[in-house]
Computed example of a mutant assay.
Amino acid sequence: MAIQRVASKWEKTKALNKKDHILPYIPETRKYSLAHLQDMLGAYNMVYIKPDCGTYGIGVMCVEKWKDDADENAALSYKLKFETQTETYPSIEALHQTIKKKIGQKTYLLQKGISLLTHRRRKFDIRALVQKTPQKTWETTAFIGRIAAPNKIVTNHHSGGTVLPIEDLLGPYLTPAQFNNLYKEMKALGVSAASQLSRKYPRLKEIGLDLAIDENFRVWILEVNTKPALFPFKWLQDKGIYKKVRRYAVAYGRLKSAK
């Protein structure tokens, strides 16, 4: 039986939002429209705009509200960031016109922006890998930190991002006890998210959970990938982690060999 893959970020978000204890981890997400853009920018200083069906961070944009603090009469404006470019717009309506040209007829989502922690002034998030075990239970088997390339708004490897162990990224911010508590929280969240999604998609065998840690050390689920890359975990110093990842992947049919 084929492993189930789910392309729509919207459908995955709706499924996760049905679980009360997962709901606080989900940033507010809506389908893109001018009215929703106005509402979200009224509520938040930063909003991400991403394709409903898309990979590798392609097509992702970010809008930030901006005002020149040096000029007390300056009007509020909006900075649109995409790839390595930034454009400024005087109104939400003007911003919307540009966004609509970029997205065309495709379905896009709006998501509350999370202020990510940084490593050497570059933003990072965390990929958690959650897999079905040979005993048919869910387990969060691995974590890896993903650092955005300079001036990029996404952390994906295909967009120039690099990886580091989460201990290296979070160590400067947390005591060992705090790190341990956050680690346990993320592991439990991975299992909860996979269990909830598998209620709607029973042939799921693995998910990649993109997690953000904000400046208050709160955990957020940015996105769920149902065909997560496995190769980044081979770069972890603990080679036993990647061996387990491969062994589980062989057991549920993703890979043919555990070598």
Rank of each mutant, 00 (worst) to 15 (best):
N151E: 13
I114S: 03
T118D: 12
Y89E: 06
R121D: 15
T86F: 00
I92F: 08
S195G: 15
I99A: 10
H96S: 15
T86A: 09
T84N: 14
D125A: 06
L182T: 12
D125K: 01
A128G: 03
P172W: 01
T162K: 11
T175E: 08
I153P: 09
Q131T: 01
L170G: 04
S198G: 06
S91N: 05
F124A: 07
G113W: 13
F82H: 12
Y183P: 05
L116H: 06
A149W: 02
L95D: 11
Q97E: 15
G160P: 12
Q97K: 15
S192H: 12
E83C: 10
R127N: 02
E167W: 06
A177V: 11
K152V: 01
A193Y: 00
A94E: 09
S192W: 12
H158S: 11
L170P: 07
G145I: 07
T86P: 00
T140Y: 00
E83T: 14
F179M: 12
R199L: 11
P90S: 07
Q85S: 15
F124K: 11
R120V: 09
F143A: 03
A193C: 12
L110G: 11
K102Y: 10
E87S: 11
K187I: 03
G145S: 02
K100Y: 06
V130L: 05
D125Y: 11
P176Y: 11
L129I: 05
N156C: 06
N156K: 02
T140L: 05
P165M: 13
L109C: 06
R146A: 05
L110Y: 14
I153Y: 08
